[in-house]
Design a protein around this nucleic acid. Sequence first.
DNA 1: AACACCGCGTTTTTT
DNA 2: ACGCGGTGTT
Length: 720
Amino acid sequence: MDITSIIAGLNDAQRAAVTAPPGSTLVLAGAGSGKTRVLVHRIAWLLQVEHISPWGILAVTFTNKAAREMQQRIEALLQQPIGGLWVGTFHGLAHRLLRAHWSEAQLPQGFQILDADDQYRLIKRLLREANLDDSRWPPRQVQRFINRNKDEGLRPQHLDAGRDPYQRQMISLYDNYEAACQRAGVVDFAELLLRAHELWRDRSDILQHYRQRFGAILVDEFQDTNAIQYAWLRLLSDTEDKLFVVGDDDQSIYGWRGAKVEHIQQFQTHFPNTRVVRLEQNYRSTGNILAAANAVIAQNPDRLGKALWTTAGEGEPIRLYSAYNETDEARFVTDQIRSLQVAGESYQQMAILYRTSAQSRQFEETLIQSDIPYRIYGGLRFFERAEIKDVLAYLRLLENRQDDPAFERAVNQPPRGIGARTLEAVREHARIHNLSLWQAAQTVIRDQQLTARAAGALTRFLQLIDNTQAQLAELTLSEQIARVIAASALRDHFAQSRDGKGQDRLENLDELIHAGQQSDLNFTLEGQTPLQTFLAQAALEAGDTQASADEDSVQLMTLHAAKGLEFAVVFIGGLEEGLFPHSMSSDNAQKLAEERRLCYVGMTRARRRLYLAHAETRRIHGSVSLPLASRFLRDIPAETLQEVRARNNYAHPRSSRVSHNDTGLYPGQQVLHPTFGSGVILNTEGHGASARAQVNFATAGTKWLIIAMANLEPIASAST
DNA sequence: AACACCGCGTTTTTT
DNA sequence: ACGCGGTGTT
């Protein structure tokens, strides 16, 4: 491995970034400019040229997927496995740190991780215990309050409500929540980061160790860092300039969950000796797509400034379709997908993007009607499914009896005669004596505070957990999981369920056992049992949103979910005021700027063809609205845009402009084809010899035909 | 403990 | 419009 192969094939800007001298570096990486490539090559450079040990490199990403990809690409580039690199998410790294220093971080050794759903349930329980009306104190709001403050690095004692009773109550709930987590030995996602930060802040010996260890720190998607993550990086890098951060201020779309675009905007102020490299050459999209995306994002204030360019040609114009309503919009998209597929484009390379997940329904319906396979991203992930979380609750309780959220979940699932009254008594006892639910259950039984029947049921539950634990010692992880599923009677419970989902659930349980088998083969964090590692991984990496469909299928997802992906053909629906930009974001300039960035992200996903659509009427929450076309559309240069008005079989009362061109054919016109028979022109494109028409034939379906070859014969008919 | 009914909210989502 | 969650009924 030599230097040449690390820098070969890089453009000037990429090479400047990869070979940057030690010191802090900010890489402003436009969409499709080879950002991951730069990170991967930079790490190779550090290893091979700067001779930094893998042990001394920390690379942080935002998703596990990105972390895996980076590790793989580094190994592929260097053609050897690279052990010892720290590549992972902020959360994954914080978790590893806390496992190594659990005692210094004041955590029990077997601490468990709460996911968002666990957190929500815990908050609801605390509200009930505090006798607070959850319509006045919506748990979601409390959860947001807690997480927002944790993301800012703020503990309850840092907050001052003054006389505001609302704030006071919130702070007090936050305080209760923290106490409950501490007692149970559980940490939520934000807590992982906060604890890690506090560990470093308060234990200079530990901080010193990691500062010395990491000679280089690389951060991907830097525009998405929140306050605590940024504080982390500053602590770790200290004054030594060893940060190499890569990001794009124009793609910051997670402000609503605490990301601060200011971090990237003001990076050079905090690190004055920063070398800035702009990656502006785009290897993904055509000229038209980039020109349009550049024009849209150019309207935003406070940009670091960047303009994407390409050596690829202009490519196809961007197609804009003004639909009558959302069904018409979906029909248009579906028709285009069908004809593109006939023309040789794979479904897999086509994506439908939208602002809100509710919009997927219309598209799904028309896709189903047309027998086009599709896959939706989003929704419940594997480890978030109720039946899976039920099993995990048992496993967590086996690891840590103090884990109250796990106790709450497992205690009466499946139903075993432990009713609300019994649980109320246990909770009350736990609250008064500051005990865990497990301990409280034991004492309540011992002190005979329950009816014989309730005491019997509760005793059997406690014994079930203890007995199961006794059986697990010699088993592999997957056998342990299988044992727990059987012993808890969850399998029987789901097998007997009559809600139609029983079979799915059983399959998921088997899948969980299978996941355990896979995990058996993987490495285990030092000092951890396979089960502990498995539980942490289940929380930190909840799995894919859907079983991967092998079938070639159209990809449907929100614009947010599309970030980082690319497709040959992209459709963006619902470009309407109130929907995109969303009405919830229309009240302030910052949120609008983020919506605009979201639009930019969406447009730059497209490699060759970009279709934009808006509807003139749309049903939202049951009632019909007449939205204006999105302001983003106004910013797209006319020369990159072609308006499509395919009025298929729809009568529509509003505009009926027809675009004629030099083909002599126009949408809506009836034609006759020698082999396909009669049809209607949906769309035309191109000029002269390459001009094509999309025709919907009565019997042969929709096809794109070269007009010069097709011998289409216009049939006289009244144009709409 | 299972089922029916009612009322409310309704952007984006990873860890 | 629609689904979810909370409450009340059998």
